[in-house]
Write a protein that binds this DNA or RNA. Structure first.
Length: 566
RNA sequence: GCGGAAGUGGCUCAACUGGAUAGAGCAUCGGAGUUCUAAUCCGCAGGUUGUGGGUUCGAGUCCCACCUUCCGCACCA
C-alpha cells in the first residue's frame, strides 16, 4: 500500500483538490520519531495560499480528512500526523516477507547490464587494505545492483603488465629461489622487487637489464613469458585464497596485459579524430586546450619513449567493455584520488564521439592511511589483508570458545565472524571518507559492528529453533507489541532502502540500516519474552522470522554471512 | 595557484537531500543474570554542527567569503 500517495490524495480532498498531487506527495514525510506517527504532513507551504497559520490548517485537515486506512490522524502544531493500522499492516508485511524469498528486491534494472571494475591488485605485490576497499565495495554494489534487477559483470582488472615485470624477471634471474617462491610467492617476489630497486640505485645496469627483459616479454620471448606466467599464477593463487575468504568472485580477470594489442587501435583512432598532439616528444590529448572550461590536466597517451600509459589502457578497456557487454553503466570502484583520471577518460571518449561515456561512473572511495600517512609498498608501511583477516578470525575463535564452547563448526563460524567484522567495518561509513588504519577498531565485535548484526541474527534464529514450530509461515499476525513497532516500521522500509543504496551506489546505507534493525530487535528482545505459550506467541514468532530473513538478506548484500549460531 | 573530498559531544560516525527536541556506537560512570545466547539491554553525562554573512515560515543541509586537514594537478598505476 502506498501511504504517501493515499495521504496526498486525502489531503487534497480536504483542500477541494486545489493542489497538484505530486507536489503534495513530495511533502509527505516519515517522522524521525515514530511516536509522532508513521507519516507526517507539514503544512507550512500551504500557509501562504490560504492566508492562515499552519497550525490552523493542520487542525482543519486533521478534522476533515477521510480516516479510512488509518488508526489515527492528528494535528500537532503545524504537522498532521498519520498512524497506520498496525495489526493489519504487520500482517500484510510479514506475509510478504515470509512468503517471498526476494522481499525488498525490484525489477527496475531488468535486462540491463552493469559492468563493475573492482579489486584490481597488482601481480607480485601483496593485497593490502587498500584493495580491500575496492573489493568489498565493488562486491556490495554488485549485489545491490542485482537486488535492483540488474545483471552485473565483475571485472578484476589485474595489474599484470609493465616495466616492473622486466625488473622482476631480472631480479629472479640473479637471486631467485624457486622453493622459497613456491612456498611464499608474493612475499618472496616483493623481496626480489625491493632488492633490485634498491641495488639499481647504485648499479644502473640492473635497470637496463630490467628494460631488456620487459622488451623480451613484449616480444614474446619464451623464457620471459614463462616466468611472467609463473609469477602471475602463483600470485593469483594467493589472491584467490583471500577472495574465497571474502566470498568474492569475478566474471572476468582480464588484466592490463589483455589490452596490449588493443591500445594501438585506440591511439590511431585518437589520431584520426585529430585529438592527438605531439608535445615534448610524447603523444598527448591536450585537454586544457580542447576543453578550456573544464580545467582537466593533459592526458598522456604515449610517453616520449613510445610506451603507453595508464589512460591509454583504460581507454582501450572502456571501449572493449562497451563493445563486449553493451552496458547500461560501467562502474570503476577505484580510489577517489583518481578522480581526474576518470574525468579525463570520459572527456576524451566524448571528444571522440562516444556518447556512451556518460554511462561511465567512477565510484571513488576514501584513502586508507597509516598514522595519517599514505601507505606505500616501497616504504614498507602497508598492512597485508591476510594478516588482518587472520587476526579477526583468531579473535572470533577466542570469543566463541569463551561464550559458546560447544558450538559446532566453530572454526567455520570464526572465519565468518572475523571476515564479517572486517568487511562490515569497511562498508559502514560513507565510501568517500578516508580511514586511518586501526586494527583494534576493525576487529571490534561490540557496538556498531558486523558481528553485532550477525549475533542479532543468531539469537533470533535461536528462538525459532527452540520454538519447535515449523509452520510459522502463513499464520496470520493477530497482535503487535507496542515495543515491536519500530521493528515492523524498519522492516517495511527495506525495499526503499535497497533502491536508495543503488541510486547512491552506497553500501553504507545497507550497513546502517542493518545496525538500526538489529538495535530495534535487540531492544525488543531484552524486554519481551517470546517463547511463552500464549495467544501472542505465533504473531511474535512471525515477526522474529521476518527479522531473521531481512537481516540475512541485508548482510548478504554486503557480502557478509549470517551464521545460524555463533 | 586551480580542482576534489572532508570539518557535527573526548574519539569514530548518522541525520531519509530544507522540517518537529541534531541521533547512534566507542570510551567514562551507574544499573540489569534461576529466563529465547550479556558479542546484549537500560540509564547518567557530554553540542553555539570550523568562522562570518546571506536566502525563508524553518538551515548541519542551499548561496557567498574565509579558516583547517587530506587528495589530485603529463612521461607510476
Amino acid at each position: 500500500m502506498n501511504f504517501t500517495h493515499i495521504i496526498a490524495e486525502k489531503i487534497n480532498q480536504t483542500l477541494e483538490n486545489t493542489f497538484d498531487l505530486d507536489k503534495l506527495e513530495k511533502l509527505v514525510e516519515k517522522p524521525k520519531d515514530l511516536n509522532r506517527g508513521d507519516y507526517a504532513f507539514p503544512t507550512f507551504s500551504l500557509a501562504a495560499k490560504f492566508h492562515e497559520a499552519p497550525q490552523k490548517i493542520a487542525l482543519k485537515i486533521a478534522d476533515e480528512i477521510d480516516r479510512t486506512n488509518f488508526a489515527n490522524v492528528k494535528a500537532v502544531g503545524p504537522y498532521v500526523n498519520f498512524f497506520i493500522q498496525r495489526v493489519e499492516f504487520t500482517n500484510q508485511l510479514l506475509k510478504e516477507i515470509l512468503l517471498n524469498d526476494d522481499f525488498g528486491r525490484n525489477n527496475q534494472g531488468a535486462g540491463k547490464k552493469i559492468v563493475i571494475d573492482m579489486s584490481s591488485p597488482n601481480i607480485a605485490k601483496p593485497m593490502s587494505m587498500g584493495h580491500l576497499r575496492s573489493t568489498v565495495i565493488g562486491e556490495a554494489i554488485s549485489k545491490i545492483a542485482k537486488a535492483n534487477g540488474y545483471q552485473t559483470i565483475k571485472i578484476n582488472f589485474l595489474g599484470d603488465w609493465g616495466t616492473q615485470f622486466g625488473l622482476m624477471i631480472a631480479a629472479y634471474k640473479l637471486w631467485g629461489d624457486d622453493k622459497l617462491i613456491n612456498k611464499n610467492p608474493v612475499d618472496e617476489l616483493v623481496k626480489l622487487y625491493v632488492k633490485i630497486n634498491k641495488e639499481s640505485e647504485t648499479d644502473k645496469s640492473l635497470k637496463d637489464s630490467g628494460r631488456a627483459w620487459f622488451k623480451k616479454l613484449e616480444d614474446g620471448d619464451p623464457e620471459a613469458v614463462k616466468l611472467w606466467n609463473w609469477f602471475k599464477s602463483v600470485s593469483l593463487k594467493e589472491f584467490q585464497e583471500v577472495y574465497d575468504r571474502l566470498g568474492v568472485s569475478f566474471d572476468s580477470m582480464n588484466g592490463e596485459a589483455f589490452y596490449n594489442d588493443k591500445m594501438e587501435p585506440v591511439v590511431k583512432m585518437l589520431a584520426s579524430k585529430g585529438l592527438l598532439t605531439e608535445s615534448q616528444g610524447a603523444e598527448i590529448v591536450d585537454l586544457p586546450n580542447l576543453l578550456p572550461k573544464d580545467n582537466y590536466p593533459i592526458a598522456m597517451i604515449k610517453r616520449s619513449d613510445g610506451a603507453t600509459q595508464y589512460i591509454t589502457r583504460d581507454l582501450a578497456s572502456a571501449i572493449y567493455r562497451h563493445d563486449a557487454y553493451d552496458f547500461a553503466k560501467s562502474l570503476y570502484v577505484v580510489g577517489a584520488e583518481q578522480k581526474d583520471h576518470f574525468d579525463q577518460m570520459k572527456a576524451i571518449l566524448k571528444l571522440a564521439g562516444d556518447d556512451w561515456a556518460d554511462d561511465i561512473e567512477h565510484i571513488g572511495f576514501g584513502m586508507i592511511t597509516m598514522n595519517g600517512k599514505k601507505m606505500s609498498t616501497r616504504k614498507g608501511n602497508i598492512v597485508p589483508l591476510v594478516d588482518v583477516l587472520d587476526t579477526a578470525r583468531q579473535l572470533a575463535a577466542e570469543q566463541i570458545s569463551e561464550k559458546n564452547p560447544g558450538l559446532e563448526n566453530a572454526d567455520h563460524v570464526a572465519e565468518e565472524v572475523g571476515a564479517g567484522a572486517v568487511v562490515f567495518n569497511d562498508l559502514q561509513k560513507d565510501r568517500n571518507l578516508s580511514i586511518d588504519f586501526n586494527l583494534e577498531k576493525i576487529v571490534q565485535f561490540e557496538g556498531d559492528t558486523g558481528p553485532y548484526v550477525q549475533y542479532t541474527h543468531a539469537r533470533a534464529m535461536s528462538i525459532l529453533r527452540k520454538s519447535g514450530q515449523q509452520a510459522i509461515l502463513n499464520t496470520g499476525v493477530t497482535f503487535v507489541d507496542e515495543e515491536a513497532w519500530p521493528i515492523v516500521s524498519r522492516l517495511s522500509a527495506y525495499p526503499e532502502m535497497i533502491k536508495r543504496a543503488w541510486q547512491l551506489r552506497e553500501p553504507s546505507i545497507v550497513a546502517k540500516y542493518l545496525l538500526s534493525l538489529a538495535r530495534d530487535f535487540n531492544s525488543y528482545y531484552a524486554h519481551t519474552k517470546i517463547l511463552v505459550n500464549n495467544e501472542k506467541m505465533q504473531s511474535r514468532l512471525s515477526l522474529v522470522q521476518g527479522v531473521c530473513s531481512v537481516l540475512k538478506s541485508g548482510l548478504n548484500l554486503l557480502g557478509v554471512s549470517a551464521p545460524n549460531q555463533m
